[in-house]
Amino acid sequence: MGDCDRMKKYISDYVDKSLDPTTRKEFENKLELYPELRSTTKNISALSKILNKLPMHKCSDDFMINLRQRISVAPQHSQEKSNMVKYAFAFSFLVLAVITIFQVNSIINKQDNSNQFQQSFENQQITPEPTNIPVGTTNNPYIQNDAVDIKPRAEQDALQDSLLEQKDAGIKPQTKYVKQTNKVPVNK
C-alpha cells in the first residue's frame, strides 16, 4: 500500500506523458498491481479532459468601450500627477540650492574670519611691543628669536664696558638692555 502511495506522485507526469521510460515502465507495473492506483490515474486523466472542455465565459458587450473610456480618462490624471511631481522636484531643488548657497557662504565667512585673526596675530608678532625684559632672559615664545640675542659673556662684558664709557663720555646709549642678568638695565 505504501508503494501505491509512493506511485501517486507520478500520476500527473504519467497522464501528461512526461515520465522517463524507466519510471514509466515501473509505474505501469504498479498499475496492474494496485487497482486503486489504476482507478485514480484513470480519474485524473478524465479530470484533465473535463477541465479542458469547460465552457468559456464571454466578456460583456461594452467591455471594449469601458476599456477605451478608462484609458482616455487615465492620461489626464497621470498628466496632472506628473505635473505635480515636476513641481515638487523643482521646489525641492530650489530649497536645496538655497541651503547649499547659505552653507557655502557661511563656510567662506568662517574662513575669512580665521584668516583675519591669523593676519592680526601675525602682525602682532611682527611688531612686538617694547618690553623691559632683558634680552636673552625670557622664554616667552611670542618674542622673536632676533630679540633674544644672547651674546657670549665676554662680549657682553665688553659691550657693558663700552656703554659705561659712552655714559661717562655723555653719549646716549643705542641699546636699551645690555646684559643677560636679572640686574637693572644699564641706562636706568
Binding site: K8, S12, D13, L31, T41, N43, I44, S45, S48, I50
Partner: peptide, 25 residues
C-alpha cells in the same frame, strides 16, 4: 502542486468523472 490539486479534485468529483466515458490511460 498540479499533481496534488488533481488528486484532491478527483476525490471531490469522482461521481462526475466515473461517468465520463472518453477516458483511456
Amino acid at each position: 502542486r498540479v499533481n496534488r490539486a488533481r488528486l484532491r479534485l478527483q476525490e471531490d468529483l469522482r461521481f462526475l468523472i466515473e461517468d465520463f466515458e472518453d477516458v483511456s490511460i
